[in-house]
Design a protein around this nucleic acid. Structure first.
Length: 427
RNA sequence: GUCCCCAUCGUCUAGUCUGGUCUAGGACACAAGCUUUUCAAGCUUGCGACUGGGGUUCAAAUCCCCAUGGGGACGCCA
């Protein structure tokens, strides 16, 4: 059976690159009906923190990645690592240097790795120094405990970032010395920033959590990450996790480093938001709305759903929603100074608002069809363009020059409030 | 410096393994237009790439070599 693992170190948040590694391992397991194991690499007892681990697990779940069984903690296995090192020293394959256990590397050998993504990689042991197995403080080195645990967990395929290719021959040496079965390896290229440098904060954030907070949908982030280094072939781009499980083939992974394009991720996020059900968006948007000053009380579900259906096509990130729609939920909404100056600080603007609001007042039915009819009729009679009425009204009612269609907006806000705002703006 | 990996539009990529159907396809971004009450969406069009040089072959984006460029690793970090 296929068995893969993801081995985060709880010394920080979940990096977007690590999330991608986890994602492809998970996909590989799901694709072939295998198991996906979590191993916590907490050998650095000083830097490892519980809160980091919790956040990593939260992020994985958020992305839709689940794991089999309980995670394995390396911090609980120091004795096992030491025993293995001890054995190698006793058999002459290693030596002591103070408290440390060092592995002796046999020179002049070629180590071949048949990488699932890169193909054959050959390294000469002349380029590998003797390797520390157990450090002077008693903790194991990464390469050593990694091998012991991967063998213990019976991992069949190790899929990880390219930054590990140089670790692989070292680890193979350990597998051989310990008489353990060597798994298959696949190294995927790293994600870079737009400028080709290592992905960092200035490229839009490296923590999965940051994207969650900024209002990216997990489906969008996963879809985007999927496309970085993998393609099912052809023109397919919008792919769900379920579909990816069916389509995934590690042979389709590219050996090329890809640059992280925040613009494309954001575009994709907008696509996912627009296609989401209003009711699915509601719980995600509600908390963000309540958090902004002025809204205070919890808006009604009915009102929220109406506004969501009007605005979900206009936002690219969930975080944009509150600022664009505050006028539906509060009378202390934000206003654009420029819009006010242009449309309602002028005499014409005020005249139009007075005239239009008095016409609206006479309506019993405040549906968008009726209010639009009133607007068109007024335009006809006064020889004004409809836009000349609409623009000042929009600013008076919403404080903004952009947004949903004016008449739909007015219908949602309601007659009394609309008239009040218009009169107030007209002075 | 040494070792390893990689190379198609600005970016992500299809095509490369199994040379010919590629005057290289799609998406993001950008530009123009249509639609239109604004914005967004939508539709149409445009811009835009096989890193360079040698081979192999009737034929190369596709195979080989070299150069160049990019990345990674050389920790008693993980």
């Amino acid at each position: 059976m296929i068995k893969v693992r993801f081995a985060p170190s709880p010394t920080g948040y979940l990096h977007i690159g690590s999330a991608r590694t986890a994602l492809f391992n998970w996909l590989y397991a799901k694709r072939y009906g295998g198991k996906f194991i979590l191993r916590i690499e907490d050998t650095d007892k000083v830097r490892s923190e519980k809160r980091f681990l919790e956040e990593i697990l939260t992020d994985l779940k958020w992305l839709g990645i689940d794991w089999d069984g309980e995670p394995l903690y390396q911090s609980e296995r120091f004795d096992i690592y030491r025993d293995a090192a001890e054995k190698l020293v006793k058999s002459g394959k290693g030596y002591r240097e103070g408290e440390a256990y060092i592995f002796k590397v046999e020179k002049g050998r070629a180590i071949e790795v048949d990488d699932m993504i890169h193909g054959k990689i050959t390294v000469n042991t002349d380029d590998i120094k003797d390797q520390v197995m157990i450090k002077s403080d008693g903790s194991p080195t990464y390469n050593f405990c990694c091998v012991i645990d991967d063998a213990y967990l019976e991992i069949t395929h190790i899929i990880r970032g390219d930054d590990h290719v140089s670790n692989t021959p070292k680890q193979i040496l350990f597998y051989e010395a310990l008489g353990l079965k060597i798994p298959a390896f696949g190294h995927m290229p790293l994600i870079m920033g737009q400028d080709g440098a290592k992905l960092s904060k200035r490229h839009g954030g490296t923590a999965v959590e940051e994207y969650r907070m900024d209002g990216y949908l997990p489906q969008a982030l996963v879809n985007y990450l999927l496309l970085l280094g993998w393609s099912p072939g052809g023109d397919r781009e919008i792919i769900s996790l379920d579909e990816a499980v069916k389509l995934f083939d590690i042979n389709d992974m590219k050996g090329v480093q890809a640059k992280f394009d925040l613009q494309k991720l954001t575009w994709m996020n907008g696509e996912y938001i627009a296609k989401s059900e209003d009711s699915d968006l509601l719980p995600l948007l509600k908390d963000r709305l309540i958090a902004i000053p002025g809204v205070g009380k919890t808006p009604s579900k009915d009102l929220l759903l109406k506004v969501i259906s009007l605005y979900k096509v206009r936002i690219k990130k969930l975080s944009e929603f509150a600022g664009m729609t505050d006028h539906f939920f509060s009378d202390t909404y934000s206003t654009e100074v420029k819009g006010v100056e242009k449309y309602i600080s002028t005499k014409e603007g005020k005249d139009i608002l007075r005239e239009f609001s008095s016409r609206l007042e006479k309506l019993d039915d405040f549906s968008h069809a009726k209010t639009e009819g009133a607007c068109r009729a007024m335009a006809e009679e006064t020889k004004l363009k409809a836009g000349a009425i609409i623009h000042p009204t929009r600013v008076a009612v919403s404080g903004k020059t952009t947004g949903a269609g004016l008449f739909e907006m007015m219908e949602v806000i309601g007659k009394d409030e609309v008239i009040e705002r218009m009169k107030k703006a007209a002075g």
